[in-house]
Design a protein around this nucleic acid. Sequence first.
RNA 1: UCCUGAGUAGCUCAAUGGCAGAGCAUUCGGCUGUUAACCGAAGGGUUGUAGGUUCGAGUCCUACCUCAGGAGCCA
Length: 482
Amino acid sequence: MRRRGRRVPEEGRGGASGKLGGSMEGRSGDRLWMSMSLEIAASAPVTTIATIGVHEGQTVTLRGWLYNLRASGKLLFPIFRDGSGTIQGIVPKAAVPEALFESLKNLTLESSVIVTGKVRADARAPSGFELDVVDLEVVQRVDDAHPFPITLKEHGVDFLMEHRHLWIRTPRQSAILRVRATIMRAAAEYFDTNGFTRTDPPILTPAACEGTSELFEMDYFDEKAYLTQSGQLYIESTALALGKVYSFGPTFRAEKSKTRRHLTEFWMIEPEVAFCGLDELMELAENFIAHIVQSVLKQHRGDLKVIGRDVTKLETIQAPFPKISYDEAHRMLEEAFSKGLIESKHTYGDDFGSPDETYLSNQFNRPVMVHRYPAAVKAFYMEPDAADPTKALCVDVLAPEGYGEIIGGSQRVDSYDLLRQRILDHNLPLAAFEWYLDLRRYGSVPHSGFGMGIERAVAWICGLDHVRETIPFARTLNRIYP
RNA sequence: UCCUGAGUAGCUCAAUGGCAGAGCAUUCGGCUGUUAACCGAAGGGUUGUAGGUUCGAGUCCUACCUCAGGAGCCA
């Protein structure tokens, strides 16, 4: 990333921060060009870089930023970005007005511009198209004294996160955010087109949903309140009102987890279905995930290429997914340990650790569904398996390539007596759960649901090594700025 | 909370206990097809903080701070 030359002082434009129409400020000798270029600009259609191919041979206007600038003597190669992609412009000194050449030659990176040029197909261009620039208006020139801090070279994690508000301008980060948007849209779309009603639960809650994780506590007038860690209990009640429902929103966990899979604030989409058992829930989950992945493949081939994702790993993501019981998974881990493929031995009855999940998910080329965990290691609201009451009717979906758990779900306890006993066994305050017990007093039915963490799904689908890149502004244990 | 590792120029990193360096960025100059362009020159430092050992500390010791990876916990 570079910037060339310095503004000539007598032009009085060096560092003209906030001044509009930089290139239109030519002296009297430039007046003819000025009026001509204004006409060109006025007549050229405004378009975006992503769709510029349909304008081949035409003169168009782009509105964006100077992403990079290379020069070779009297030839300039500005690269523009506009949020939809990047395109290289060509500016030969002999072919454009002097003021235009000088204005661009000294322009600082990330200055905002309105650029007009002729679209030309060129085999040398990565995107297939280049822009022969005929006019350039500088909307705001980045001051020489404070150049754009993010360069095309490598940076450390801390520096990038400290400048996250600027880091998101880079092609890779922008591509990730576009894919995230599609994942969120496809997820909601799947439920919207399959008879679900969206019912969002409150963010401020009076007590823990599960009582296990740490919560963010806050003062609610004279009471204590907590940021939600899951909308599940609330959507169980809307499911008994509306049949098939889902919620979609931010959730908060005050766990002091410092890993590539954890955020303190993350987005979760949670369906809940009345008259639904575990098998039907697993079918819902696999069709849901397949729909999301196929939607991303259909709409973001270009972005996935920018991100560097191996799409052949995504093309295999079709329902049905492999389904194994906790007992089968345990046997796989025992065998792996005896062959020396994993370091620590899994103890039957314990939950799986991260290395265990990584091993299991690596055995399949699609997400694997692990069901019927020991009830003792799972949440209080999970229905026991009638065939073996020590097991819970629950399922975890482990993403391939070692991405771990992206979905956790279960059939819920529908018996009033059992649920009440479970609440007491877990030392939870009964009074806080009276409304939840009401759902078992008045027309209780078997019902099931799951929650999918959006950021983990984005990390997997994009092939990222950390969830902090999957959300515009990640909230982690050590960072709440910017 | 625990384990491990890292803090040196704006950024990414070097420097056997003995003169604090490189690449990129910045500034100046050169180049008409560059792809993180390239070539030449210049400026740029309280080595995270506070103590200590030593003739001498970026380097060794102690404490603290910040960050990263992992464990536990979870989506």
